[in-house]
Design a protein around this nucleic acid. Structure first.
Ligand SMILES: Nc1ccn([C@H]2C[C@H](O)[C@@H](COP(=O)(O)OP(=O)(O)OP(=O)(O)O)O2)c(=O)n1
Ligand SMILES: [Mg+2]
Ligand SMILES: [Mg+2]
Length: 1141
DNA sequence: ATCCTCCCCTAC
DNA sequence: TAAGGTAGGGGAGGAT
C-alpha cells in the first residue's frame, strides 16, 4: 500500500515538475468516462499547466468535471457541479490562459432532464493527496464515485512489476484499499497516443491490436498449440519417463507408512492391479480459476477476495453514448426470452415453470443479453447512486471462488457481476503469464506420461492407466504429486478428478474444486450422477438443457427415465444416445490426439464499423492475411472459402450497448469453392471481396466479419509449376488482376467433382468433362471440351458468361495460376471462344458494380439458361446467440447470382404432384416441358410466383408442406423438438436450389406496386375477440377453425392470403405498424384457438418473404414469429412448429 | 445407406 | 468504453 501511494505521488510530482505554465492553477479536474482527448491526455495537459487531476470524483477536491456526455440520471444532484467539455482544457492551453469555463459547460442550461454524473452526493475521500485520494479506512469504494469507483489495482506500471523477477516488488494493495484510480499512464508503455482512438476496424493495426487483447482468441490459439504440443510429444517421446521414479517412491512410502488398507485411498487398488481388464483410469486436471490464479501471483494481498480478470477498468462507462439505445437490445433480448422457454444455464438450477415464463432466467448468469436487459432496466430505473449504477459491458474471463460465491460467473459482464458482488476487484489480463503457466502445466504432466489429451490451456485429460501400473501408485497419489508440482512451478492451484471415463472425471473435477482432488469410484457412480443437473453434463449446453427442460427433465435421474428411442427421436441418433449414456455416467470416448485439422478461420466481431465499401474490402484483405498466416502455420491449403458476416439488424440501433460491440445482428454466410486449394492471401482476399460485394450490405451496417477455409489439403500435393504459372498471368495488367475478383465459381458439387477429376487426369492435361448439374439436362461436357480445343488467348473483361464457364472477368487469375499450365490454357481458350459466341453486356448490374470494371456479376434480372451456374449462396441467420425461432437460418439470397432450377422431374414425388391443384400441376408440368424442349428450366420461383399472383391458390411448397406437416400440432411438451426444420417437412421445401433467388429478378421486372391504399386497407382489421373454450387442458384439443377473427374482413385463408399478397407487393418493406397489426391479428387467432390459421398465415408469409429477399421483410417476419411463439407459448405452454428458414 | 453442404451447438 | 474467437460434433435434408 505504502509503495503504491508513494509511486502515485512520485508520478504526480514528477509530472508536476515539468509544469510548463500555471494556467490551471487552482483548477482540479475529474474526467468522467471516455473523452476526447482521453482522460490520460487531459491529465497530462492539466498537470503540465499547473492544475490538478483526480482519478475519481470527490466534491471536496474537484473543481471541474470534464466529460463529453453523461449518463441520463441524477442531474439534480449535480446542480452545483461545473461540468465542462474537454475543449475547455485544450482551448485554454492553446490560448495560453484559463478561459472562462462557462463557455464550455456541457449543459449550459441545466434543466431537470439533464443527464448527470453517476456519483453520489457525498464524498468520502478525506485526504487530499495531490494526485490521488486514498483512504485506507474507506471500505466501500463504491461510495465514492460509481463511475470510477474501482479500477484495476495493478495499474501501477505493470510492466515494471512483471518484468521483475521478484513478485513481491510489485505494487501491493489490499482489497480494502480504496485506491481505485490511477488508470495508468504506464511509464513503460507507449499507451497515450495509442489509446486515444477507439479501436475500430480499419484503424491501423486494428486486427493485431484486437487479437492481442482478445482472450477468446488467445485461449483458442493456445488450445490448438497445446494439442499440437502433445501430439509432438507423443511422436517424439521415447517412452521413458524418469520422473516416474518419484511417483514410485511416493507410492512405496505411503504403503510402508500407512499400510495398504487404511488411507483414504483405501478402496483404490494401487497400480490398477485389480482393475477390470480394459478399464482405464482417467484423470481430468484443471487449473482453478485460471486467469485469476495467475493474475493473483502479482497481488497476493487479493487472495481470498472476490477478484475478476476483465478489461473493465472498474470505472463505469459512459452509458449514453450518442446513438445508443440500450432499450432496443433490452427489448430484443426480452423478446427472445419470450420465445425461448426456460433456457437453462450450467449450474443453474431449474426453477418451476409456468407455461412459457422463464423463472429460470432471472437467476441465469453469464448471459450478455440478459445482462444487457438488466443494465437497461437499471438505466431507466431509479437514480440512486449506489453500486448498481456501475455499468460495464466488459466480460469477465475468470473470477475467483470468492466471487463465485456471490454468483459471479466466468463470461459474465462486469456490470452485472458488480451488482452481485459490489466488492469485486478487477485485475488485468496477463496473457503472457497464462501461456507460461499453461506450458508449465503441460510440461509437468508430460514428464510422467504422454497419454494426454489437451482440452484447453488450463485443462487436460490424462489416461493414467499405464503410469499407475508402472509405478504402483494410486490415482490420488499421482494427482497429489502432479498438483504439488504444478503448484510449485506455477504458484497456481490445480484440481483433479479421477474416474473410469472422461465424463466422470470431469464431473469429479468439478466436485474437487477448488484446489482439491476427487476419485469417483465405479460403485459410487450411480449415486453420484443421480442428482446432477442435466446441464452439468459436458455437451449439454443452453439449448439442449432447455429442450430437456421442456420435457420436464432437469436432473440426470429424470433423464435416465427417458427412453433411448425418445431421446434419439428428439435429438438425433448420436446426440440422443449421447444423452442416454451421459446421464448414466457412461462414456466410452477415449482420450485422443488432435487429428487432421478440418478448418482454419479468422473472424472479428468486435470493433467493426465502416463507412465505405473500400474499408470493408481493405479489412477483408487484412483478415485474409490472417487466414493465410494460419494456413501456413498448419501447412494447409483450403479449397472452400466461407465469408461470414454479421450485419446490424434492420431495426437495431447503430450504437450497440457494448462499446463497439456487434449488437443485434443478422448472420450472413457465403461460400465459394475453388477449383484448386489455395493458401494465397490474394486469392482469399479477392474471393472474399467478391463475396462481400455480392451481399450488398450497407458498409455502415457491418458488425462482424470472418473468413473460414475448409476442405483443407496438404499444400505439397497440388503445388506444381507455380512460378511459371504466375508468369503466365503476368501479362495481364494490374488493373485487370485487381478487377478480377471472382473465381471460377460453380456449385460446390460441381467444382468438387471437377477438381478431383482434375487431380486424376493431371497427366493428360485435358480439362475433365464438367459434371452434369443435378436437375438439368446436361450441358454436354463435350461442348466444353470442344471449345477448349480452340485457341485464342486474349482475356477480355467484358464478357458474358456461358453455360458452364464463368466469365473471364470472374476468373481469378490467382486461382487460375494454381492450375497446371495446360489446363489454364484450355480454360482461357474455352473462355475466349465462348466470348465470341455470345454478345457482351446485359449482365452488368445497374449502379453498384457498374463503376467497377471487372466486377460484373452474373445477371440477376435475367435468367437465361444459366441455372446450372450455381453460385455462391448467401444465408441469413437470426441474431447472434440464436435461439429457437431466431436461430433458424433463412436463405435470403441477397446476392444476385443464384439462379435456380426446378428439380429434376424424376425427383418429384409423384404423389405430391398429383396432390397439387390442377392449375398448379399443369403449370409445373408445363415448366418441365419447357425445360425438356429448350434444355433450360423455368425457375422454381416462376411457380412460386404463380402462387403469388394466383391468390386463391396455394403454391407448390405450401401444398406439399401442408399435406406433410399437417395437422400442425401444438408442440407443448414438444418444443424441445429440434429448433430446426421439422422432419416431416416437404422435401421440396428445403431444396437449396429451389429457393428464392429468382424471385428477386422476377419481382424486379414487374414491380407493379399496389399502392399504399391497399396496405392501409389491409391494416385495419376487424376483431370480435371471441374467446371460445380456453386454456387448461385443451392442449390435446383439435384447434377449431373459427370465423370470428378476421383480417380486414378476410376470414378464410384464401381471403387473408389475398390481402397479404397485396400487402407484400405494395411496399418495399413493411412498416412497423403493419407488422404490429398483423401481430395483433395473429394474437387474436391464437386467442381463438385457431392455430391452424396462424400456421397457414405464417407459412404463407414465410414463403412470400423468402422470395422477397429483403432483409426488412425478413425482419418483419421474424418479429411475427417471435410474437406468435410468445403468445402461443404463454397460452399453451408450447410452441408452434414454424419455419424461419 | 452414405455422401455432402450448411448450418447450430458446445467448450474453453 | 472494449477487445463478443475458434474448431469439432452432429443434425437436417438433398444427391446419389
Ligand atoms: N467464458 C469464459 C470461460 C473461460 N475463459 C478463460 C478464462 C479461464 O480462466 C480459462 C479457463 O476456463 P475454466 O472453465 O477452466 O475456468 P477457470 O479456470 O477460470 O475456473 P475453474 O476451472 O476453477 O472453474 O478460460 C474465458 O475467457 N471466458
Ligand atoms: Mg480452470
Ligand atoms: Mg478449464
Amino acid at each position: 500500500m505504502q509503495a503504491k501511494i508513494q509511486k502515485l505521488q512520485e508520478q504526480c510530482t514528477k509530472e508536476q515538475k515539468q509544469a510548463s505554465s500555471n494556467i490551471f492553477s487552482g483548477v482540479s479536474i475529474f474526467v468522467n468516462g471516455y473523452t476526447k482527448p482521453t482522460p490520460a491526455e487531459l491529465r497530462q495537459l492539466v498537470l503540465a499547466h499547473g492544475g490538478q487531476y483526480h482519478h475519481y470524483y470527490s466534491r471536496m477536491l474537484v473543481s471541474h468535471i470534464v466529460a463529453i456526455n453523461l449518463p441520463n440520471s441524477k442531474v439534480a444532484q449535480l446542480t452545483s457541479e461545473k461540468v465542462v467539455r474537454p475543449d475547455w482544457i485544450t482551448d485554454s492551453v492553446s490560448a495560453g490562459k484559463l478561459l472562462a469555463y462557462q463557455e464550455y459547460l456541457l449543459y449550459p442550461t441545466v434543466c431537470k432532464s439533464q443527464p448527470g454524473l453517476t456519483f453520489t452526493k457525498h464524498t468520502t475521500a478525506p485526504s487530499g493527496g495531490v494526485c490521488e485520494t486514498i483512504d485506507l479506512n474507506q471500505k466501500t469504494t463504491r461510495s465514492i464515485v460509481t463511475t470510477a469507483n474501482v479500477s484495476h489495482l495493478d495499474t501501477v506500471p505493470t510492466n515494471v512489476a512483471q518484468s521483475t523477477t521478484n513478485p513481491s516488488s510489485r505494487c501491493i494493495v489490499t482489497a480494502t484499499d480504496t485506491i481505485t484510480s490511477v488508470k495508468p499512464m504506464d511509464p513503460g508503455k507507449a499507451r497515450p497516443s495509442k489509446t486515444d482512438m477507439p479501436a475500430k476496424a480499419g484503424d491501423r493495426n486494428f486486427v493485431a491490436e484486437f487479437y492481442s487483447n482478445s482472450r477468446l482468441h488467445h485461449i483458442s490459439t493456445w488450445g490448438a498449440e497445446l494439442k499440437d504440443y502433445v501430439k509432438q510429444l507423443q511422436k517424439k517421446g521415447d517412452g521413458s519417463f524418469p520422473m516416474r521414479e518419484k511417483l514410485c517412491k511416493m507410492a512405496a512410502n505411503t504403503r510402508a507408512e500407512v499400510g495398504v488398507s487404511t488411507n483414504r485411498d483405501t478402496r483404490t487398488p494401487p497400480g490398477g492391479m485389480s482393475r477390470t481388464k480394459g478399464q482405464r483410469t482417467i484423470m481430468h486436471l484443471d487449473m482453478d480459476s485460471f486467469f485469476v490464479s495467475v493474475g493473483l501471483r502479482n497481488h497476493p494481498h487479493l487472495q481470498g477476495k472476490p477478484v475478476a480478470v476483465t478489461h473493465s477498468s472498474g470505472k463505469g462507462a459512459a452509458r449514453n453514448r450518442p446513438g445508443t439505445n440500450i432499450e432496443y437490445e433490452r427489448a430484443y433480448w426480452q423478446k427472445k426470452r419470450d420465445s425461448v422457454r426456460g433456457r437453462g444455464r450450467k449450474g443453474v438450477q431449474y426453477m418451476h415453470r409456468q407455461v412459457c415464463e422463464e423463472s429460470g432466467v432471472d437467476t441465469e448468469e453469464g448471459e450478455d443479453e440478459d445482462i444487457e436487459a438488466i443494465q437497461a432496466e437499471n438505466q431507466s430505473g431509479r437514480l440512486g447512486m449506489s453500486n448498481e449504477e456501475f455499468f460495464s459491458m466488459a466480460e469477465i474471463a475468470s473470477c475467483s471462488y470468492e466471487a463465485r460465491q456471490a454468483g459471479v460467473k466466468n463470461g459474465m459482464l462486469m456490470g452485472e457481476a458488480r451488482r452481485l458482488c459490489p466488492d469485486l476487484v478487477p485485475i488485468h489480463y496477463d496473457f503472457d503469464a497464462y501461456r507460461e503457466v499453461s506450458q508449465a502445466l503441460y510440461d509437468a504432466v508430460a514428464s510422467y506420461t504422454h497419454d494426454i489429451e489437451a482440452v484447453s490451456c488450463d485443462e487436460m485429460l490424462i489416461d493414467c492407466t499405464d503410469v499407475l501400473v508402472d509405478t504402483s501408485a494410486t490415482p490420488l497419489q499421482f494427482a497429489s504429486l502432479l498438483r504439488r508440482e504444478i503448484r510449485e512451478k506455477t504458484q497456481c492451484n490445480a484440481s483433479a478428478g479421477i474416474a473410469e471415463n472422461i465424463l466422470l472425471a470431469k464431473l469429479a473435477t468439478r466436485k474437487a474444486k477448488p484446489n482439491g482432488q476427487f476419485h469417483l469410484l465405479p460403485e459410487d457412480v450411480a449415486e453420484f450422477i443421480k442428482d446432477k443437473s442435466v446441464s452439468d453434463l459436458p455437451g449439454v449446453g443452453r439449448t439442449t438443457s432447455s429442450k430437456l427442460h421442456a420435457m420436464n427433465v432437469h436432473m440426470c435421474d429424470q433423464l435416465q427415465r427417458v427412453a433411448m428411442a425418445t431421446l434419439q427421436k428428439e435429438f438425433g441418433p448420436k446426440t440422443g444416445q449421447l444423452l442416454y449414456r451421459l446421464c448414466r455416467g457412461e462414456d466410452s470416448r477415449c482420450i485422443t490426439v488432435e487429428r487432421e485439422r478440418k478448418s482454419v478461420s479468422a473472424e472479428i466481431n468486435y470493433g467493426i464499423r465502416f463507412t465505405q465499401m473500400s474499408e470493408v474490402e481493405k479489412f477483408l484483405e487484412e483478415l485474409a492475411g490472417e487466414v493465410h498466416n494460419r494456413l501456413v502455420k498448419v501447412d494447409r491449403k483450403g479449397k472452400q472459402i466461407t465469408l461470414k458476416v454479421k450485419v446490424r439488424r434492420q431495426d437495431a440501433p447503430r450504437e450497440t450497448a457494448k462499446f463497439l460491440g456487434h449488437g443485434v445482428c443478422d448472420n450472413l454466410a457465403k461460400s465459394v469453392t475453388l477449383p484448386v486449394a489455395t493458401q494465397e492471401v490474394r486469392v482469399i482476399a479477392k474471393q472474399c471481396i467478391t463475396l462481400v460485394r455480392g451481399m450488398r450490405i450497407t458498409p455502415s451496417d457491418f458488425r462482424g466479419i470472418g473468413i473460414q477455409m475448409t476442405h483443407l489439403e496438404a499444400p505439397s500435393v497440388g503445388k506444381q509449376s507455380n512460378q511459371t504459372l504466375l508468369s503466365f498471368v503476368t501479362p495481364v495488367t494490374q488493373k485487370d488482376i485487381c478487377s478480377m475478383t471472382t473465381s471460377v465459381s460453380t456449385t460446390s458439387a460441381v467444382i468438387k467433382t471437377t477438381s478431383s477429376l482434375m487431380a486424376h487426369q493431371k497427366t493428360c492435361r485435358i480439362l475433365p468433362p464438367l459434371p452434369k448439374l443435378p436437375n438439368l439436362s446436361s450441358p454436354p461436357a463435350q461442348v466444353v471440351h470442344t471449345r477448349m480445343q480452340q485457341d485464342t488467348m486474349e482475356v477480355n473483361n467484358d464478357v458474358v458468361d456461358d453455360w458452364l464457364l464463368p466469365s473471364p472477368s470472374q476468373v481469378d487469375l490467382d486461382v487460375l495460376a494454381e492450375l497446371p499450365e495446360d489446363i489454364q490454357r484450355q480454360l482461357q481458350k474455352a473462355m475466349t471462344d465462348r466470348q465470341r459466341s455470345r454478345p457482351p453486356g446485359g449482365n452488368i448490374l445497374p449502379g453498384h458494380d457498374s463503376d467497377q470494371p471487372g466486377c460484373s456479376h452474373w445477371p440477376s434480372d435475367q435468367h437465361d439458361d444459366r441455372e446450372d451456374i450455381p453460385v455462391e449462396v448467401t444465408r441469413v441467420t437470426g441474431g447472434e446467440r440464436s435461439s429457437k425461432a431466431e436461430s433458424e437460418s433463412v436463405d435470403l439470397r441477397l446476392n444476385l447470382q443464384p439462379i435456380v432450377a426446378l428439380p429434376s422431374y424424376s425427383q418429384l414425388d409423384p404423389g405430391c404432384l398429383a396432390a397439387l391443384p390442377s392449375e398448379l400441376r399443369e403449370e409445373l408440368e408445363h415448366a418441365y416441358d419447357q425445360e425438356r424442349s429448350k434444355r433450360s428450366v423455368a425457375p422454381l420461383t416462376a411457380v412460386a410466383t404463380t402462387g403469388d399472383k394466383d391468390d386463391g391458390q396455394t403454391g407448390l411448397t405450401e401444398v406439399t408442406e401442408m399435406s406433410h406437416v399437417y395437422p400442425l400440432r401444438l408442440e407443448q411438451a414438444k418444443s424441445y423438438n429440434s429448433p430446426r426444420k421439422s422432419p416431416a417437412k416437404s422435401p421440396r421445401r428445403g431444396a437449396k436450389a429451389g429457393r428464392g433467388g429468382v424471385g428477386r429478378g422476377r419481382r424486379r421486372h414487374s414491380p407493379k406496386k399496389l399502392q399504399y391504399d391497399t396496405r392501409q386497407k389491409t391494416i385495419e382489421a376487424v376483431s370480435p375477440q371471441k374467446v371460445t373454450g380456453s386454456s387448461g387442458g385443451d392442449k390435446d384439443r383439435e384447434p377449431s377453425v373459427s370465423d370470428a377473427v378476421s383480417l380486414c374482413g378476410a376470414v378464410d385463408f384464401g381471403a387473408v392470403k389475398l390481402l397479404l399478397s397485396q400487402w407484400l407487393q405494395s411496399c418495399h418493406s413493411p412498416t412497423e405498424s403493419d407488422v404490429e397489426w398483423l401481430a395483433t391479428y395473429l394474437t387474436r387467432l391464437v386467442g381463438d384457438l385457431n392455430l391452424e390459421m396462424v400456421v397457414m398465415v405464417m407459412k404463407y408469409l414465410h414463403r412470400q418473404v423468402k422470395m422477397k429477399e429483403s432483409r426488412q421483410w425478413m425482419t418483419g417476419y421474424r418479429t411475427l414469429i417471435d410474437h406468435v411463439q410468445a403468445v402461443v407459448c404463454s397460452r399453451y405452454g408450447g410452441m408452434l412448429k414454424l419455419q424461419v428458414t
